[in-house]
Nucleic acid binder design. Sequence first.
DNA 1: CGGCTTTGACCTGCGC
DNA 2: GCGCAGGTCAAAGCCG
Length: 296
Amino acid sequence: MSDELKDLYYDPFQDDGQNQKLVNIPPISGSSSMGAGYNNNNLQGFDQYPPSSYTSFTDCLQGAAGSAMDYNSIAMAFGLSPSSSEVFSSIEGNNNQKQFDLGDHLSGASHENPVTPNSSVSYSSTEAGLEEDSEKSNKDSNQQKGSDDGGSDNSKNKVNKLAKKKGEKKQKEPRFAFMTKSEVDHLEDGYRWRKYGQKAVKNSPYPRSYYRCTTQKCTVKKRVERSFQDPSTVITTYEGQHNHPIPATLRGNAAAMFHSSMLTTPTSVSSFSQEMLFQMNSQQQGHGSVFHVPQT
DNA sequence: CGGCTTTGACCTGCGC
DNA sequence: GCGCAGGTCAAAGCCG
């Protein structure tokens, strides 16, 4: 997985600052599912942001922007096209250095940019496609094996049923990853997700969970893992784009209306993102900077 | 009873 | 070729 993160993390300071977007999202409160290894020593950021401020990821976003938004919106807010790039943003409270250490560790890049207490960095990458291709090839291979051995094996047969036509390359889904300081692993973002897998992560005591959007025909997936270097940080990676509005029953009409407006005004993404960021920035002046958009 | 989570098995890619 | 790691599947179990 480190390879993927290497894709997601790249040194934004070597890109003339053009891709440098800063984002801070307050930590999200909620019931913790962490084990004994998770203690309050890792919750430094919560001193600044009382856990009661937000009850979910969407609440967090709503609190910041005055309206709900999904990952697409966030990606667009970064000035990136969700369909063509990935974003990695670190969201944190006070211990920024850990975040950057992580970034350095994963990217192997070195930079000397001073880190201000309330700043964090989003990373974008254009190296989309690698994982989906491999995933697709897996299915293809499965199907081929099934026809080779006649599909007598039960489990193999099941997998083969899901295999698609050979050579049918699956398009690389856009990915959008961000880090959030949160007690809960699975952040509420307005969509409904079904967990379909969990894997232990090498060199990390925390497992990685795999979720799929439960909406029919929606292929969006997300991976949730906790940073082993900063256990209070949750790394969420969205893959793909929702082709449906946020379920209104989950987060109320605001979320759906927001998303609907995004869908109906695709040409105003750029101006909207700026406006949204501006609003976020303004809203957060009172208790710390949530969004900081540097001049480009 | 339907939806969701858990979890072991399976598969592929990749590095050695 | 082998072993490891990541990703996915699906049966079983849980829960409202």
